[in-house]
Design a binder for these strands. Structure first.
Lengths: 186, 186
DNA sequence: TCGACCATGTAAGATGTTACATGATTGC
DNA sequence: GCAATCATGTAACATCTTACATGGTCGA
């Protein structure tokens, strides 16, 4: 029940399905992922329900863009969702389920290579978020991030969490690798 | 595509649908949640595919228990899943999407109460995991957690991550509350 | 006797994934 | 000419959620 709400939130500003896909990949993937094949039908349904409107715009390359934006009704529906309070218990991280069961693997080397992959991926994501933050810093001057307000403040707080979490994951993966090596010695 | 695999992993030991629901609530909810209405059909499908077998057992209270366990074929399918490497990009945390868009809320007090709820919930979960760990410690003696091997080692590493993450979330939520208060003063 | 817990499920509808299908533009 | 990127979708299938349905045991 959340993707339509997330789309609605993004459509405070006009955007096409393709634009939204890029936003997911670039910045939202830390807490949500969605593919084009899910985004297009969801936008159509929002439009059918009167929560967004759309129009065509020419594109520089490729076919015409269908651009969507919140309607007043959509804005209210979105705010209702925010005011429901935090939607907890939506955790879904398959890699942690795998980590939990790693003792059942056949290949004796699997746990090590698994955690190495985790560590490398998390490190790359932490760096990607840090790079995104550097771009922001350039736009906002030396008082960044203390001078942020409104939308930018809340976006930054979420990004900040992403960086903290990914760094924690990297440290954890390294500690796990050390423990695996330690347990093998016994 | 992950719930069937998680069920298979749990069914290294015999368990009923109800037992599995309890395991999700107790210890797996940190990284995955599943309801009974999802578990029962999933178990039936695994049985139809020959990945688990089932038998009836009398229950002390209530109706007979249908107990399931991995077959050899199920065990192999599970190991294949482990060896696919970490399934990344399965993140789905609705509350972070809400946090990202909090500037769009109507009620000026919404961000504060939202982050307070997050902080309190995370603190409760961190404490719950710590309590679970204390039970383990009693079972494993003073060398815990360094004396863990096999399944228990990997379970503990995942629990350890849960505790670290929840503590980080609590600190983050408190920092966010301070930032919200700071931004309101301006 | 009432609520909490044990224990099973089904049905309908919403949501998400995978594979397929199309076609223009830009840079190498 | 080929791959990447821009840009749109549909169809079939798998998965998940919400609501409904049933009934026994235990303790307050």
């Amino acid at each position: 029940m959340s993707l339509p709400h997330i789309l609605l939130g993004l459509l405070e500003e006009p955007a096409s399905g393709y634009d939204i896909k890029c936003e997911f990949e670039q910045s939202l993937s830390f807490f949500w992922s969605a593919a084009l094949a899910q985004i297009y039908p969801a936008l159509k349904k929002l439009e059918k329900d009167g929560l967004v409107t759309s129009w065509q715009e020419p594109s520089e390359k490729g076919p015409a863009r269908t651009v969507y934006q919140q309607t007043e009704k959509g804005r209210e529906a979105f705010r209702d969702w925010l005011e429901e309070g935090p939607q907890l218990n939506t955790e879904r991280r398959a890699y942690l389920a795998q980590a939990y069961f790693l003792a059942q693997s056949r290949a004796p080397d699997e746990p090590r290579s698994f955690y190495e992959q985790l560590r490398d991926d998390f490190r790359a994501r932490a760096n990607r978020l840090t790079a995104l933050e550097d771009v922001w810093r350039d736009d906002h001057g030396p008082a960044f991030p203390d001078n942020l307000t409104g939308q930018a403040l809340y976006e930054h707080m979420t990004f900040d969490l992403g960086q903290r979490v990914f760094r924690l994951y990297v440290d954890w993966a390294e500690d796990c690798l050390a423990r695996i090596d330690g347990a093998e010695k016994d």
